[in-house]
Amino acid sequence: MPERPHRWGMTVDIDRCTGCQACTVACWAENNITINTQDIVNERRGYYWIRIERYWEGESPALKVRFFPVLWQQCANAPCEPVCPVYATHRSVDGINIQVYNRCVGTRYCANNCPYNARFFNFWERWPPEPMNNYLNPDVTVRSKGIMEKCSFCVQRIRRTERQAAREGRELRDGEVQPACVQTCPTGVFTFGDLADPNSQVSQLAQDPRHYRLLGHLGTDTSVIYLKRIDP
């Protein structure tokens, strides 16, 4: 336990996003997410821990395409937390909304109450088919039917890095922890770090005049901070 609790956060620079979906794939591989087959998508039960939303602005030829990565917002004031009857989702000391799969009974109240629509329910038991199960990440639980799941900021990586640092007897370095999406993004859209540390790169970026939060009027105080796109 560090003396000063972390508050893990992320900035998302929309200006850099090209909509290549590499983050989505990385997230899928890292977190053992169910494969979004055609059936699942047609049932409207797809799993996108991080998704690239695509918006069209204007008419051709002045058409503009906006790409907009939406992941779980890690609200400090999360609407999903108090409504869970069994503490399956609650806030950890280092500022992550953790989802405890063991405790979840699947009331799905949190999904209703999430204004960002970032929670996913396991409607079926989905064990990956034969060769695919060899891809599974051993650090991450495969979720059974009837429970909620969502982006965890790759908590397994955070913990691994923390353990590593503790073994080496040092503090965590800024930028040492990298969730899968951050690591993969070719254009560096995401910056991950400790928002409680004023000198970290992510805190610096969060001060950027372009910063804003999604659905800020709800007062959810998210840990994911977006940086606005400025059209040339």
Binding site: N77, P79, P82, H217, L218, G219
Partner: peptide, 9 residues
Amino acid sequence: WYGRTPREQ
């Protein structure tokens, strides 16, 4: 009070 949105606060 439960909703905790700034408007209602």
